[in-house]
Design a protein around this nucleic acid. Structure first.
Lengths: 189, 189
DNA sequence: CTTGATTTGTTGTTTATCCGACATATGGTT
DNA sequence: AACCATATGTCGGATAAACAACAAATCAAG
């Protein structure tokens, strides 16, 4: 609460920068993109970039986080129930995201990207758990969210390792009974 | 010359406003678009709009002029020769433009739009005439450009009146011999 | 290793944009 | 009519963004 609403110029400029970065990363890979490229595309001054982002790696993190967050929350969080259907949706969103990244070739930043994905998953899971559980077990909800985020991310890596065998939906479906029993156990305690 | 280059914020903001206006006018007709709609879409303050444009009619003029100018100059002006081919291209650009406007329903502003089209045609014709003619007959080149702009605009209105009979290309083709003989006469004098 | 060119961050000063408030239309409802 | 809501256009005072200049890092080529 006590929301000090941020200056619209800041929101607009961040959006311009992020969109320009996403647009550029569709044409060339990350290591070849300079701050100057981004600011020229966004029609802003280079110094303004540093007003918003520590460096280009900071932008990478925030841009990917935002894209992922939008995907996760628009697709899934609306229904706000952590069930078989929503888990499949989340898993699909993650594998889609990883595929879109592999096209854009962010080689050398796999660890950073992995962390971003897990962080966003954790946030999403925590929100969903909180909305369907009693309020007084906050710490354990956090832990479950961490657990689930690592688990789902790991599953997505495993899927990628032996990909094209099965669809993401089929792949994760087989593991859902175990995942859900764990969630149900906690939700009912 | 002595170009005082304008502040990039001005160029950026104008572009944001114009793009927002064009985007909105694809969904709803001109009379239902408010300044607030435009500034919200563009993520700028309403007061900033008035820093750049006198009112929404001023924006209409400048936005349409810009769209038309881009169409005319990119399609045609590159080859910079005023011949049969380029006249057909110009005529096609005008009829395309008029069709795109009739979809967007600017009823009540036909006169304004007519003037915009003629002005842009005049500018284009003048540029092309100047690049293929000796320098010392500036006044008469201007007059010829005016003459051509009215003529081509009138032809486009006539084509629209009995449209779907013939394509714009065929329609104008039949008049070209007369138009060209006039131009050639002046170019050789 | 040197050279030259480009990119990266940083810093004061100027400028465009934001904000909020205002008076004045404009349009729809009772 | 009177009323209410919303749109228009304008104004000083606050703030983000532009600029230009800078040192330092990076990198390719000779």
């Amino acid at each position: 609460m006590a929301q000090v609403k941020t200056d619209p110029r800041i929101l607009r400029t961040r959006k311009l920068i992020m969109n320009s970065f996403i647009k550029l990363s569709e044409k060339q890979e990350f290591k070849d993109i300079t701050v100057k490229d981004i600011t020229e595309e966004a029609m802003i001054n280079r110094a303004t970039f540093y007003y918003h982002f520590k460096d280009i790696y900071d932008l990478l993190e925030k841009a990917l986080s935002e894209v992922l967050s939008i995907n996760l929350n628009s697709d899934v969080f609306e229904r706000s129930e952590l069930n078989e259907e929503s888990i499949i949706h989340i898993f699909k969103a993650i594998t889609d995201f990883q595929l879109s990244l592999s096209n854009r070739c962010h080689r050398g930043y796999e660890d950073t990207i992995a962390r971003i994905i897990r962080e966003q998953l954790e946030i999403t899971f925590y929100k969903m758990l909180k909305s369907q559980s009693s309020m007084d077990e906050d710490k354990s909800l956090k832990t479950i969210a961490v657990f689930l985020s690592w688990g789902i991310y790991g599953a997505s890596v495993e899927w990628k390792r032996c990909e094209e065998r099965t669809s993401p939906e089929e792949f994760i479906q087989s593991s859902i009974p175990y995942i859900m029993s764990g969630i149900d156990f906690e939700a009912e305690s």
